[in-house]
């Protein structure tokens, strides 16, 4: 079953008052995305915080599928909420520094929870993210972007990506496109 079908199944079970029927689809979804979410969190957070933040993201992302909001594709939604929770984490720490200096302004660090940060990230991480997006946009052809999707961002080998792309694309072409893309990305970052 697709993510969306699993969510629909859970909604129906919940509406029918059969909460035990939600266990299996929930287990499939949480287990299925847990490691990727935790690994992404580890890229930006201290290891001890990564699982907690990923847990909060999973809970609020899946729960929001039940509060009347349209969440679109679940995988994208999970990762969007993860990024918000990570941004919240840093917002909290920034406030801690400010409230140490200005105790009268202290309002509770966790007020940012479930609130949308104004900026997803600041500083180096935001700059790097924008650089990667720019390098991707600068690719001249759709087929090159597709090669990056399949080989650099995706799970395929260069040979498999070339075969999937067809149109005369070779393994060497895919390597060349990927190398140029990563070189450009590093130039933008430098």
């Amino acid at each position: 079953m697709s993510d969306e079908e699993l969510v629909a199944y859970m909604r129906a079970a919940r509406e029918a008052g059969r909460p035990e029927a939600m266990k299996a689809p929930l287990a499939i979804l949480v287990f299925g995305y847990w490691d990727s979410l935790v690994a992404r969190a580890r890229l930006r957070l201290p290891p001890a915080e990564a699982e907690d933040v990923a847990g909060e993201a999973v809970a609020s992302a899946i729960a929001s599928a039940f509060d009347g909001r349209s969440v679109g594709e679940l995988r994208s939604w999970l990762h969007t909420i993860l990024m918000r929770r990570i941004a919240d984490y840093y917002e909290v720490r920034k406030r801690r520094v400010q409230t140490t200096e200005l105790a009268s302004e202290h309002q509770g660090d966790e007020d940012v929870w479930r609130r949308e940060p104004a900026e997803p990230f600041e500083g180096d991480a935001l700059f790097a993210s924008e650089s990667l997006a720019l390098a991707y946009r600068e690719l001249e052809r759709d087929s090159h972007r597709r090669a990056i999707d399949l080989y650099v961002f995706g799970p395929l080998s260069a040979a498999d990506a070339a075969a999937s792309l067809g149109g005369g694309m070779t393994e060497a072409n895919v390597h060349q496109i990927a190398s140029r893309f990563q070189r450009r990305f590093k130039e933008l970052l430098a």
Binding site: D3, A27, I28, L29, F31, G32, Y33, W34, D35, S36, A39, R40, L43, R75, H79, D124, A125, A128, S129, S131, L132, D149, V152, F153, G154, P155, Q182, F185, K186, L189
Partner: peptide, 20 residues
């Protein structure tokens, strides 16, 4: 930072893991 961003982009697109 570049490696971090590339791994991040890869993980964001990773398909759902099969249930075990």
């Amino acid at each position: 930072e570049a490696l971090s961003q590339l791994i991040d982009a890869y993980l964001a697109r990773a398909p759902r893991r099969d249930f075990d």
